[in-house]
Nucleic acid binder design. Structure first.
Lengths: 332, 332
DNA sequence: CTGAAAGCGCTAACAG
DNA sequence: CTGTTAGCGCTTTCAG
């Protein structure tokens, strides 16, 4: 900046004014400064400026998702980025990997860089560690999972309702022995979906004893093996409800291995690419992660713009997409 | 920081020393400072520190990928993040959307925040705008696509070779009328893959006139319609080579629409989830995006650690995965 | 082992 | 319309 000022033959502050588009600079001076800046390839140091600037905004957001390699997270990320880009805000993105012990460290990484806001998918038992930061006025929005120990804007889908609906759908097709295949039990969405599953059974008067729930299926292979075991046992289920994407794929692989795809019904929570082209096509409870990301980002920017109304809990509705696998009737 | 110093009853510099783990601080003082910091929930401002620090490192990287919503990009991102996390480095991630006009602006967004390094997938005709920054010593690595107008570390896959191999594979199964379905022609990988396709035909002595190339298929639907048109025409191809993921899916949908999946052979560039469970299973030229991201990040960190050897061009080999769709023999 | 003074690149407040 | 001075939160340098 000093070099620019020297080259243009003006004072430091004048350069600052031109760069920030402040008024009260003559046309010719502006010209000179811009030329000098271009010649020196000058790019202002945003952080240094924000050190002294009144609003103290870094125009930076911290985003924590399940894994940036996962399409569900990718859609959330993309939504946040799209809104952020409009406001000249850059996004730090990190992966949680459902590891509670990583959460705090990643958030600190963001905070040390003085992000303007935080959009978080969490796994730790409590998010109370955020209280001081929230107190300080940093907006925080939780996405996909509800927080514990801190009150802030939250965007989730109707996990229990979606799971109930799917379960009721299977019941309506004559199934009574239905298996629930769940993710790690520490994950809030898993517990919600399991709750919805059990509630639907209860509402239909189906004894819980006829339902099998297998949990902590943390990847495709573990899920696949669980299904193989389940279907080889006594009283094998005639339908499967899978609580998540990767588990659904494990289920599909297992059914394919057994040639049971057209005999055992299945519905998966979360839509995925090509689900409609499989044989049978896969019935799913579809979420809308892009929308969830959009709402979360909107909340953050609204807070940054001064909205100080009480924390909002936003529920995005899921949608049952019937494609075939969930409409197979119970047999035997 | 001042508050911490006051609360602990020590000088500013002592706090600084404790926080940075510098030597020459007594045990008891360290204790006091840490307590005060914890009590005040103090987190040092990384950017402010880096303003004066000798190495001037922000421990921040800028990553530009095709789209953070795309699994290919997600894998690159994840690889970069994994390496960056080990070094306490945060990653800004942005989506290019193959829009040359966005490229420069996003890079400036990164540069204004003084990132330590840049990992870029580019679309603009030239990356010469980066020369001053490279001159200044900021390490830049290009991933997936080669740059123009600037010399820097580059990680690409063997696009032409992979495409040649796939084409030769189709030729070996008796196909002569093969269609190439390509992405936007501004994209370097598209041109390379097309080149590989044509070279394989040439090497086999197949007249180029018997090959159809359709380009600028920028999404699933456009690709699907192109295939429908192609197969309805005279001299319809008996095999299809698709240059990219989304196009492959468009092809599959079109073949499904026509019930031609087991008659028209196809190979796609890029592997994708569930390709092996479709009917027929899809033969692909698989890339390894996670590995590409890893290598790019390694280059950046090596440069940051002082490696000033000439720019390296790293080629990651692709792999033909035979699953069925590419092994259908030519008919009629 | 500890602290005071100077300065990183920039902007706020005020003076010309 | 323009320049000067102070100071953001921190680290460096150098003197206790």
């Amino acid at each position: 900046m000093r070099q620019v000022a020297a080259l243009a033959g003006v004072g430091l502050k004048t350069v600052s004014r031109v760069i920030n588009g402040e008024p009260n600079v003559s046309e010719s001076t502006t010209q000179k400064v811009n030329e000098a800046a271009a010649q020196l390839n000058y790019l202002p140091d945003l952080q240094a400026g924000n050190l002294r600037r009144g609003d103290r905004k870094t125009r930076t957001l911290g985003l924590l998702v399940g894994s940036v390699a996962n399409p569900f997270s990718g859609a959330i990320h993309r939504a946040v980025e799209d809104l952020a880009a409009e406001r000249g805000t850059a996004v730090f993105a990190s992966s949680l990997d459902d590891d509670p012990s990583r959460e705090r460290g990643i958030v600190d990484t963001f905070l040390r860089r003085r992000v303007d806001g935080l959009i978080l998918t969490t796994a730790a038992r409590s998010q109370a560690y955020l209280l001081p930061e929230v107190e300080r006025g940093t907006p925080v929005a939780f996405v996909d999972r509800e927080p514990t120990g801190v009150d802030a804007d939250t965007v989730v889908c109707d996990n229990a309702e979606g799971a109930s609906l799917a379960t009721a759908h299977l019941l309506a097709h004559g199934h009574r022995r239905i298996a629930f295949l769940g993710d790690r039990t520490e994950i809030w969405t898993e517990r919600e979906r399991r709750r919805g599953f059990l509630e639907a059974l209860g509402a239909a008067g189906v004894p819980t004893s006829s339902a099998t729930t297998v949990e902590n299926l943390y990847d495709v292979d573990v899920a696949r093996e669980a299904v193989l075991r389940l279907l080889a046992g006594e009283n094998a289920p005639t339908a499967i409800f899978s609580s998540q994407n990767l588990i659904s794929i494990g289920v599909i692989r297992a059914l394919r291995d057994l040639g049971a795809g057209n005999r055992v019904a299945m519905i998966g929570f979360d839509d995925f690419q090509l689900a409609d082209l499989l044989e049978p096509a896969v019935t799913v409870v579809a979420q809308d992660p892009y929308r969830m990301g959009t709402i979360a980002a909107e909340r953050i920017f609204a807070r940054l713009d001064g909205d100080d109304s009480p924390a909002v809990r936003h529920v995005v509705r899921t949608r049952l997409i019937e494609r075939g696998s969930g409409e197979l009737r119970a047999h035997g």
